[in-house]
Nucleic acid binder design. Sequence first.
DNA 1: CCTTGAAATGATACCGATACCATAAACGCG
DNA 2: CGCGTTTATGGTATCGGTATCATTTCAAGG
Lengths: 339, 339
Amino acid sequence: MALDDTRRGAARMRDVARVAQVSTMTVSRALMDPGKVSPEVRARVAEAVAAVGYVPNKVAGSLSSSRSKVIGLVVPSIENSLFASTIQGISDVLRRHDHQLMIADSGYSAEAEEAAIRAFLEQRVAGLILHDTTHTPDAVSMIRRSGVPVVENGTLTPEPLDMVVSYSNHDASRAMTQHLARLGYQRIAFVSLPASANQRSRDRQRGYKAALEELGHGFDPRLMLEMPPGLASGAEALLRLMEGGGHPDAIFFAGDVLAMGASLECARRGWPVPGKVAIAAFDNFDLLGHLVPPVTTLKLPRLEIGRRSAEVLLDRIQGRSSAAISVDLRFEIIHRGST
Amino acid sequence: MALDDTRRGAARMRDVARVAQVSTMTVSRALMDPGKVSPEVRARVAEAVAAVGYVPNKVAGSLSSSRSKVIGLVVPSIENSLFASTIQGISDVLRRHDHQLMIADSGYSAEAEEAAIRAFLEQRVAGLILHDTTHTPDAVSMIRRSGVPVVENGTLTPEPLDMVVSYSNHDASRAMTQHLARLGYQRIAFVSLPASANQRSRDRQRGYKAALEELGHGFDPRLMLEMPPGLASGAEALLRLMEGGGHPDAIFFAGDVLAMGASLECARRGWPVPGKVAIAAFDNFDLLGHLVPPVTTLKLPRLEIGRRSAEVLLDRIQGRSSAAISVDLRFEIIHRGST
DNA sequence: CCTTGAAATGATACCGATACCATAAACGCG
DNA sequence: CGCGTTTATGGTATCGGTATCATTTCAAGG
């Protein structure tokens, strides 16, 4: 196909160059680094761009420069609103820095995560953000070989791939357990998501046990439960604990919307909270503050995790840092009527 | 840089070709269309791929083939869990078809949407999914010129850019209003998000008014309110309506978590629902079914919108369809104790 | 006035794949 | 057995930009 004004399809830089009567290099400079081009030419190029409706082809640009402005993110679930704040934080920072975000969800499976990582590396992303901290060996070696910078988010893992931005699930869980003890509760039950395939849940369980030990409370297995996520699940956990032999006076629900389900179940049954049993939650959903009574919970830096992850990643990509840093963000306890 | 085994960085197809002792074309075929390559060669290539740790470069592939497997999605807000189900639906279908998802959020601004669309077109996405249905003129002309297929999601708009997959906000709103009337409520109030910049809210308001008219109920401006999103906002709307002169016996909250906020406020004040006032909601958050009393609401096909959007887009991209179709998905009313 | 160097611009190779066409070998069949 | 056809493979141009180096121009300095 020869140089031809009537060519169908998107205008190329060549077309802009012809209209502006300069070379493509000059067009490229005018767009990428306007300071390197004289004001008159810059204006001619701008005019030509508008005239032909030029939309730069970043695919060609990335190939040529072997640079990319795309970041890949893998979360366990897109639908789970817990991750939404983090994604929003990432998105905000990336937009400000003119980068794009690709998202995949792993459905909590390391194999699906590996597939997503592979797809991202095939797209030659400039960086990766992974919520999970456990990966398949193949995923790890692919990432290592690619040399792409990575941020992990899920928990402060002792053996990170590269960079970590998170809070300590262990410390948060321990802090809440201690808080409940300080309030005078003696038999503190603990409900989490299944720990088998999930480092976050394991860390939270460890934090709970660490607190009990420091407090001199013995560990009673009747007071510890693992439940699948969901509101109904929280209600069921409540009933099982109250009807089991453990006689808890407080229950710490360390995951998902379990605490909400339990609180609503108490409301349905007319059980006074904390009169019959105190309830504490892990994640700071707005709703928890509006329930009757409002629920004591942890305030976790979800949005901040997203922001900082994007920031440290961009710092690395843009050569402003090279360290395999680990950022430990803070959590707070929000004390409310339920405890 | 000459052909050199010790070259740093990712292996290229050329390296695989050398190790497998075939041409790059054969490697390309072995990976893209294995049937076209003899079994022995296919095996040699597979071995070579593993040996050099080859990760195909889709950037180069896209440039060369002028095809891309990336879909761009623009939502008003990533954090808002309403959109999360739709995103999940899109993601599920794309993953099954080996496509990638790029996400941007517009923060409810048409200008930011335009910027996101431009960025996606620069990345030469294969298709676009836009939640909003109102766009800047520049955005529209860019999309038109690019020839990229588009799906709009927000509402069944009468003048779509291309394809639409949604439900009728107007009909859903009318149906719920009629439902409340059928239950015997006489003074049905309506609360929505601000309609000024939002076609969805406008459609819902129109549906409410249409129902009133069909029912022969007069329209009382004291019974209609616009509120910003949020739980607190729902509570405030409730109080304003109950203390205003309109004396509603039912309130239909047509947006976000307003109904939840109102329901929780009733619980806090000990107001019986529906004894003092009935409450109906628009979106089917699970929580609504767990409140006391559980809240009547619409069941909207959020996940299905995502799935179908991705499907019709892929159909078009892969040449299985060419029509500018409009898919009208169904909603249902979930009748519960609050009305 | 000539030298030196910075600033502005262009020519050309190249990024890493795929498209297209050519070629060689294997195959089918009257 | 000969010839057309299919199957397997390779050579080379090309996708649309950017990197690199060369060239030109012009101002400043000795």
